[in-house]
């Protein structure tokens, strides 16, 4: 019970603190809350946009949660999703006449593969060379960004556009968008992300491999003594994470833009860390917290327009305050101890 209650209370606390800040900025907190709510859930379109932002966050949240269960910290989801999207767009741009449904399947596999490779590299470096995945994933983010720029601007540049983006993918690649959301680009990528969460849950809690991952995450010496090869498990965990992050490319390229646009991600990979943290690194929790962060992202976009003093940055402050209150576990145990004393 506490496991569910604690994140909810933390969110409430963070939200209250954030609204306190708007008060200081000279805006009525009630007014701000109303705008946030209306903007995130007010209409089919608004809710659709919330879902659209939540979809990649589910995937990046999982991409952080899976390695976390195996005792690894994946800061590289941003790079992994960049390459996933790039690979999907490249397949679509290079072979534009591919028929549906083969086309989206191929592009999806390409996205998964690219992300997997980008995740496997730091996994391998950690397992075989002992170099820390936090540093390597951060550096690989930069390399991925550079690589994506080069491919976009020099190899697959869209000749009909001034924007830094690749040639459009063939029509056979586009996946279904749901009509009920009034034009918000909610595509099949959403059920795909939810399905990924279900599969991750099965992996972690119902398979031998998942058990071994969690054993390594709990205690490497114990896992090793039991005959589990921690290095191999680490490589697998990071590869799975990379593949999950790579799937972000499906929603963006096949379900939304129809091409790879440089800088399309408002740092989904990093918000994914917060999503995983708030979701306690559990698939169900990740889906729920991705929804929350998606709503915050959408809701805050309109604050700028509809209020005098509050800007988009408030959303970032809110997110930061929520993360702070979630991570303040010390505070919780302190309060608990006081109650017992």
């Amino acid at each position: 019970m506490r496991k569910v209650l604690q994140p909810i209370l933390a969110v409430a606390l963070g939200l209250a603190l954030g609204l306190g800040v708007t008060r200081i900025a000279g805006e009525s907190p009630w007014h701000v809350l109303q705008i946030l709510w209306r903007s995130a859930f007010g209409s089919n379109y608004d809710f659709g946009m919330t879902l659209f932002y939540s979809t990649p966050l589910i995937l990046t949240g999982l991409a952080v949660a899976v390695p976390f269960q195996a005792g690894l910290f994946n800061i590289g989801a941003e790079g992994q999703l960049t390459l996933g999207a790039l690979a999907a767009a490249a397949v679509g741009a290079l072979w534009p006449v591919m028929p549906w449904p083969l086309a989206p399947v191929l592009a999806t596999l390409a996205a998964i593969l690219a992300g997997t490779v980008w995740g496997a590299i730091p996994g391998w470096l950690r397992a075989r060379r002992g170099s820390h995945e936090v540093i390597n994933t951060i550096m690989l983010n930069f390399i991925a960004a550079g690589l994506a720029s080069y491919v976009t601007l020099y190899l697959l540049k869209n000749p009909d556009s001034q924007n830094p983006e690749t040639r459009p993918i063939g029509a056979g690649y586009l996946i279904h968008q749901f009509g009920v959301f009034g034009g918000a680009p909610v595509s099949l990528a959403l059920p795909l992300a939810v399905m990924a969460a279900v599969l991750v849950w099965i992996l972690l809690w119902r398979t031998v491999l998942g058990y071994e991952m969690r054993a390594v995450g709990q205690s490497e010496p114990a896992a090793r003594a039991a005959g589990i090869n921690p290095g191999r498990i680490r490589i697998i965990a990071m590869s799975v994470a990379g593949g999950l992050a790579g799937l972000v490319g499906v929603g963006e390229v096949l379900g939304n833009a129809g091409k790879f646009r440089l800088g399309f991600s408002p740092e989904y990979g990093f918000i994914g860390i917060a999503v995983a943290l708030l979701g306690r690194n559990q698939p169900v929790g990740v889906v729920a917290s991705a929804l929350l962060f998606g709503a915050l992202h959408k809701g805050a976009a309109d604050l700028d327009l509809e209020t005098e003093h509050v800007t988009r940055e408030l959303s970032l402050i809110l997110q930061a305050l929520i993360i702070l209150s979630v991570s303040a576990e010390g505070l919780w145990s302190w309060m608990k101890k006081r109650r017992e004393a």
């Binding site: 969690r214 054993a215 709990q218 205690s219 010496p221 114990a222 090793r224 003594a225």
Partner: peptide, 14 residues
């Protein structure tokens, strides 16, 4: 039966 049962023998939180 490992030498350090807490480290090598068990997943203490599980």
């Amino acid at each position: 039966i490992p030498e350090d049962r807490q480290q090598e023998g068990l997943l203490l939180e599980r």
